[in-house]
């Protein structure tokens, strides 16, 4: 496990919290990740862009072991990801994940959704877990929904609950897998705003998204994926204003 870092330290002097080395993955004959290597510093916000089917979602899901890789190594927070269940669970304790389709537990109230993992994994007393859950709901702006069920909330509200649920475990790393892709346009902003405030709080984040303005605004570095490979990595201004690679230019011309 890595030491706490000082937020005054410049990014390039911090330690790598996520280390991915030469990841390879196949679905049958389909080579979905080709020698993907990416290191993420403590407190860094990395945004992954790319056309659909380019392997970016698959990549982010390998970081917490939801997808197995066939070749390569991943180290998260100093713990090497192996087939050992204990290692995987230790990594998942430190990585929160937000899904495209929210995946809240429909049979539990919002409060129970958020407190379940802290109570059973972190072994917090119920009162403490509920207090922190309420603070988080306050932070994402929906404390009044605590005793409702997920089905009674709008998509944007559900996604904000999902963010609160992931944060309740007090993870060091947050993974966002297209958090706004399943939302109605008028709800995208409320979720992006929550993620933006989070990005300023010093937590390490890897975000897969199609929201270009958001990427430009929050990212420390942007990674461009295509055909299962990393095409280009750079700061937002390098990548948007001065793309080096032909495929980056093509991708940007298609969406901007």
């Amino acid at each position: 496990m890595l030491k706490e870092f000082n937020s005054d330290t410049p990014l390039d002097q911090r330690e790598d919290i996520v280390v991915c080395n030469q990841l390879n993955k196949w679905f049958g004959n389909l080579h979905v990740l080709k020698d993907v290597s990416l290191n993420v510093k403590q407190g860094e916000v990395v945004v992954i862009l790319g056309p659909s089917g380019s392997g970016k979602s698959t990549f982010i899901r390998t970081v917490n072991g939801l997808e197995e890789i066939q070749k390569g190594d991943i180290t998260v927070d100093g713990i090497p990801l192996s087939n050992d269940v204990a290692d995987i669970e230790a990594i998942r304790k430190e990585t929160g994940m937000v899904f495209q389709s929210f995946n809240l537990f429909p049979h539990m109230t919002i409060l129970k959704n958020i407190t379940l993992a802290p109570i059973w994994v972190r072994k917090w007393p119920k009162a403490k877990a509920e207090k922190i859950a309420m603070e988080l709901l306050e932070r994402v702006g929906i404390p009044e929904q605590a005793h409702k069920y997920p089905g009674q909330l709008s998509g944007g509200q559900q996604q904000r609950v999902a963010i609160a649920r992931a944060l309740a475990m007090q993870p060091k790393i947050m993974l966002f897998d297209e958090p706004t892709s399943a939302l109605d346009p008028e709800m995208i902003k409320e979720v992006l705003d929550v993620i933006k405030t989070l990005a300023g709080s010093g937590i390490t984040m890897i975000v897969v998204t199609h929201e270009m303005n958001f990427a430009r605004e929050v990212a420390d570095r942007i990674v461009l994926f295509d055909f299962g490979e990393i095409i280009e990595i750079g700061t937002p201004s390098e990548l948007f204003d001065n793309p080096k690679h032909e495929r980056t230019k093509l991708f940007l011309s298609q969406i901007l």
Partner: peptide
């Protein structure tokens, strides 16, 4: 039960027993 429910439970670090008892079986 949709795959997302399993994944959400796993991503939170719940072990197999807790995942089954509180998330999957009740549904």
């Amino acid at each position: 039960i949709p795959r997302g429910q399993f994944e959400a439970a796993e991503a939170l670090g719940l072990n197999a027993t807790i995942k089954m008892t509180f998330i999957i079986l009740p549904q």
